[in-house]
Design a protein around this nucleic acid. Structure first.
Length: 264
DNA sequence: CTAGATGTTAAGGT
DNA sequence: CACCTTAACATCTA
């Protein structure tokens, strides 16, 4: 489920395992996932180089190479990142495989090929080129409020729009709105200070709790909506049936008894 | 067999 | 202009 929480966990894992090792080989199994680069270009940049640091902005993972450039990964709907030893098999649907001279490997697996890998000179340049908004969890309260004040339309659409706030996707926007007790179709311009404050804190709280659970839904707090989303799902607070709404072409789930708009 | 699935982008509509 | 919806991408699963 690669939204900001999942990418944060990939970042922490890479940081703890895959840095400062010389890259020996790069295998692109599907060139469909490359954006603005080629298997040759990627190989030339990565081989004999090392990863030095990892950062996250929204749903993007940036890996800094010792010699300047950044490797940028976006996981799409079903992508995932695995670092593993020589004894383990390469994951199914591996589209990019990086091998180190110590025998360990890093695989980007993506069944649906909706993941993207590219190279960038700087994070700033990449973020501007893709017109990404501020990262949803690296944002001071006043700036969040200012962004909200200039927003139009429904709150779920706003949270999911990567150009206004980066990192929140369909599943986590439902979770954040559930924790903030706001309906997905509330208009942002109708949210009062209290509702905006609740929303701001819900973003931080949900992110922290999900990352602590290593982005594994099974390990998340009982009061999370996440594992109840879907047909027949019940609200973890009041046990009532969840309602489905279609917003921005996606299925959103919420509890009509627990969630409201601040002006009614 | 069909519909829907965590994302992004382009295109068309209001 | 701002906002919304839909389709497309490729593939799996309920």
């Amino acid at each position: 489920m690669p939204e900001f929480t999942d990418v944060e966990v990939y970042k922490q894992n890479l940081n703890a395992t895959a840095l400062h090792q010389t890259i020996q080989g790069v295998h692109v199994a599907s060139r469909d996932i490359l954006a603005d680069t080629s298997p040759q270009g990627l190989g030339r940049t990565l081989k004999k180089n090392r990863f030095d640091a990892v950062r996250r902005h929204g749903k993007y993972l940036f890996v800094k190479l010792q010699r300047g450039a950044w490797l940028v990964m976006h996981f799409g709907m079903t992508g995932s990142l695995t670092y593993f030893g020589a004894d383990r098999r390469v994951p199914d649907y591996t589209r990019l495989l990086v091998s180190y001279d110590n025998g360990r490997r890093l695989a980007l697996s993506a069944p649906r090929k909706l993941s993207r890998v590219s190279l960038a000179d700087s994070m700033r340049e990449f973020i501007e080129r893709h017109r990404l908004g501020r990262d949803a969890v690296a944002l001071p309260r006043e700036q969040f409020t200012a962004l909200a004040r200039s927003a139009r339309g429904g709150v779920k659409s706003w949270l999911m729009n990567q150009h206004s706030l980066a990192g929140i996707g369909n599943v986590y926007s439902d979770e954040i709105l559930f924790q903030a007790r706001l309906r997905p179709d509330c208009k942002v311009r109708n949210l009062n200070d209290e509702a905006l404050s609740g929303l701001y804190h819900a973003i931080q709280w949900v992110f922290d709790a999900a990352v602590k659970a290593h982005a594994d839904p099974e390990k998340m707090p009982d009061r999370f909506l996440l594992t109840h989303r879907g047909p027949g799902g019940k609200c973890p607070m009041c046990r009532g049936m969840l309602t489905r709404v279609k917003i921005s072409g996606r299925s959103g789930w919420y509890c009509p008894a627990c969630q409201h708009c601040s002006n009614n």
